[in-house]
């Protein structure tokens, strides 16, 4: 298979994100529409139903460096959230601690990242964790 270069993969992801992905429970877009390097993105996750996160909207920041998609993006929660894979000092997500993301592959995408984080939020061990006040942020 032809190897799709970073920029053309990100352009495809951008177009997919603009159309809307899945059932709308996750979304993402460029932080700055003028950013020709397409490095900085924002994402949102709608808290999964039947969990402590229900009806909450979480914002995240996603950074894709020059080595994306060979290297996973850096993901940070802006909204305060209590999860074992989120650093409580700065909101940084440790993708290695999320089962479906621990072995990053270049076939994955920003969509995969958000969908898998959301899935982990709803897992048996995480769905009842006490959460900070709604609307509070790490910054």
């Amino acid at each position: 298979m032809a190897k799709v270069p970073r920029n053309f993969k990100l352009l495809e992801e951008l177009e997919k994100g603009e159309k809307g992905i899945g059932d709308g429970s996750c979304s993402y877009g460029l932080e700055d529409g003028d950013d020709i390097t397409m490095s900085n993105w924002t994402g949102t996750i709608l808290g999964p139903g039947h969990t402590v996160h229900e009806n909450r909207i979480y914002s995240l920041r996603i950074h894709c460096d020059d080595h994306y998609p060979e290297v996973a993006p850096a993901v940070t929660f802006i909204s305060r959230i209590n999860l074992p894979f989120v650093d409580q000092k700065n909101g940084k997500v440790d993708l290695k601690k999320i089962s479906n993301l621990s072995h990053w592959s270049h076939e994955m995408s920003l969509e995969t990242v958000l969908v898998e984080i959301r899935r982990a939020m709803a897992s048996g061990e995480n769905k009842k964790l006490p959460q900070p006040e709604e609307g509070s942020t790490f910054f």
């Binding site: 298979m1 032809a2 799709v4 270069p5 920029n7 053309f8 352009l11 020709i36």
Partner: peptide, 21 residues
């Protein structure tokens, strides 16, 4: 600019983008 020939080129067009504003 940057240009990429996808797997199904030449059945599908090249992808091209300006890198200079």
């Amino acid at each position: 600019l940057e240009l990429f020939l996808p797997e199904d080129y030449p059945m599908a067009p090249p992808k091209v983008r300006f890198l200079t504003k």
